[in-house]
Amino acid sequence: MRKLLATAAAIAPLLAATGVQAEVVISTDRTTPVTTSGSNDSVRIAGSGSIAVASGAALTLDSNHSIDLDSGSEINMLKSADGSTGILVQGGRTGSVTIGGAIQLTDDLETAVDTDKDGDLDGPFSTGTNRYGVNIVGASPFTGRIYGETSSNISVEGNQSYGVRLQSDLVGDLDLRGLISVRGDDTYAIRSQGDVTGDVYVAGTVAAIGKNAVGASVEGDVSGSVTVQGQLSSTGYRYTTRPS
């Protein structure tokens, strides 16, 4: 019997030739933003890992790489500044975004109060503006899949804010199967404004609460199918059931 042994020196060019890539894995709690260009590689947040920042973009795809949030991972932007973004994706790039963990952006509104003493809470739903769970931007299309797994949880507080917003064109599927919730006036849980060369699939539980809140809006052309399953809701009321 003939046996072949491959040395490390021999394996390296083979991996390069077949396109096998490594990735940067975040497995601890990090308090500074991360970019794929700065990492010069794809970025994965493991189930034990997190990124916690309060402004800007926590995680940016700005090179031909991918982003992956494992189940249990977190992006936390608590009491975040206006314009904060959990994951920013730049058009003109090729890669993918897979979300199995949690993305949370909150405002600085601690609790609503019953100012007129009539038995229900009053005041604004949220404070601050223009927060994004996932924001895909740019004049050129992003090529790749945007995928929210069933374990994904995207939660955003803020007026004129978005759970997932597609502003550029997308060559690939927009596939969202987890929990997406937004709270604030003029908000969208999902807003797809660019053209999609692929399918749009919305499942799981999608909810928007606030004046002029929208659960899901598909405004651009879609070459494939548009499928909505699961629970999709929007309301401008703080309470949706009659008090007892």
Rank of each mutant, 00 (worst) to 15 (best):
I75T: 02
V53F: 02
D29W: 11
V34D: 02
Q104P: 00
R30C: 07
L61R: 04
V53H: 01
D122R: 09
T111Q: 15
T32V: 15
V34H: 07
P141I: 04
G100Q: 05
R131T: 07
T35M: 07
M77F: 04
G119T: 14
S42I: 03
G119D: 13
T85A: 01
T60C: 04
R44F: 03
I87P: 10
S37P: 02
G49C: 04
I146K: 01
G158F: 09
V43G: 02
K79R: 15
G119P: 11
D114L: 07
L61I: 12
V156F: 02
G123K: 09
V34G: 03
N130C: 05
R44C: 05
G49F: 02
G101R: 08
G100A: 08
S42L: 05
F125A: 12
V53K: 01
L59E: 06
L88K: 15
E110G: 12
R93D: 08
R30D: 10
F125E: 11
F142N: 04
G123V: 13
N40K: 12
D70Y: 11
G148Y: 06
R131A: 09
T143G: 04
D29P: 05
I87N: 10
P124R: 11
G91K: 09
L109H: 04
G83K: 03
V134L: 14
Y132D: 15
S55G: 11
N153S: 13
S48T: 15
S96N: 12
E149C: 09
D41R: 11
N76D: 13
M77L: 14
T129D: 10
N76P: 00
R145W: 11
G119N: 08
I45N: 08
I51W: 05
V113Y: 10
G49M: 04
G144P: 05
M77P: 02
D29R: 15
D29I: 08
S155C: 04
N40Y: 01
S37W: 00
L121M: 12
G92Y: 04
G38H: 04
A139F: 07
A46T: 08
T115S: 11
G158L: 07
S50F: 00
I67G: 05
T129F: 08
D118F: 14
S27D: 10
G91Y: 07
I45L: 09
G138M: 11
I136N: 05
L105K: 04
T98G: 11
I146W: 01
D62N: 11
G47S: 15
S48A: 13
V43F: 02
M77K: 03
I45H: 10
P124T: 10
F142A: 06
S140L: 14
A52N: 10
G95A: 09
V34W: 14
G49S: 05
A57G: 11
P124H: 15
A46H: 09
S80M: 00
L121T: 13
D122Y: 08
E149Q: 13
K117F: 08
G100V: 07
V134E: 08
N64C: 02
T129N: 13
S96F: 14
